[in-house]
Design a protein around this nucleic acid. Structure first.
Lengths: 160, 160
DNA sequence: GTGTATAAGTGGTTGATAGTGGGATAAAGT
DNA sequence: ACTTTATCCCACTATCAACCACTTATACAC
């Protein structure tokens, strides 16, 4: 087989990327945040950052986002809830690009939403990456930390 | 990542413009408002500005507006609500153009409708752009912000 | 282990562009 | 004609993106 020079990872979200792991980085004084190198290939050159649930930020590869967009577009303009839902995600989204050092610039509205002051935690969650303020992440983990028994029970319920 | 020369726009499903993001600008003393540069290309030189729902203004690229018009036309003339809905959008509509610095002049009836005094928030919402008074946007977000549980539920419904 | 090479992470500088304000000019309304 | 409103153009400033230099961490050979 001739090597075209094109690798599967040149197609963001092509294969079965799965984001895993937890990384800690801090925001520099210009609002830039490093994306861990483990995630860079699978996110691609450009990806979408949006407001997420529980005060974190979601990072989606472009194709994943387009998929999401298409679904949002089908919601009716006449429903008040739908308008709020759609506004939340679209207004909270930014397309971003890595600089040559593998960083992105966090827009101020997203920084506010995620309450990130200085230290951030970046975690891989299956098809997306999430960005948390360290404080919020710690709080979340202590608040919702189920004991291992509880986790095991939940897993059993889900048939794992 | 190695640049394979393959760009995202080479993929199908690129075409349609999608507005995303949140920007904040103020109206100058001549009543002019900056349209964020990210939106300018997709809006084109001339576009349609009209009254929107929830006390904001809608901005549609010409093509999207025609689309929207077609949908409005299909509404039954026999329904009182439908007639009001149609009048609302048509009567508020103005075609406008950017000046060379990328600004528009807000007609006074629309300025009144949106209650914009000084600070405005411009957000991308899928196929349209919305213009809010900062006060109204903040109020909207605190009043109607759906809880994360509600958002999560909606996401689940959409299969995201 | 130690030393070296490579990659990842950090910080600052600079040039380009977007945003902002205002004066001059033109068009429109009275 | 005169006032008002809108458009054009220029100058200034803030912000962002590209670039460069350096430090720290990781991988690998010996």
């Amino acid at each position: 087989m001739v090597d075209s020079g094109i690798k599967w990872r040149d197609f963001p979200n092509w294969g079965e990327e799965m984001f895993i792991g937890e990384f800690q980085h801090s925001i520099d004084n210009k609002g830039r945040l490093i994306i861990p190198s483990k995630f860079r290939d699978d996110l691609g050159e450009r990806f979408v950052l949006t407001k997420g649930l529980d005060n974190c930020l979601f990072v989606y590869p472009i194709l994943e986002w387009r998929n999401f967009e298409e679904k949002l577009k089908t919601l009716p303009l006449t429903s008040k809830d739908a308008r709020a839902f759609v506004r939340f995600f679209f207004s909270g989204a930014t397309e971003c690009e890595l600089d040559k050092q593998g960083r992105i610039l966090l827009p101020s509205n997203l920084r506010e939403h995620s309450k990130i002051e200085k230290d951030a935690v970046i975690i891989g969650v299956s098809t997306r990456v999430e960005i948390w303020s360290k404080e919020e992440w710690d709080k979340y983990n202590s608040d919702t930390s189920m004991g291992y028994d509880a986790i095991a029970e939940k897993m059993a319920q889900l048939g794992i």
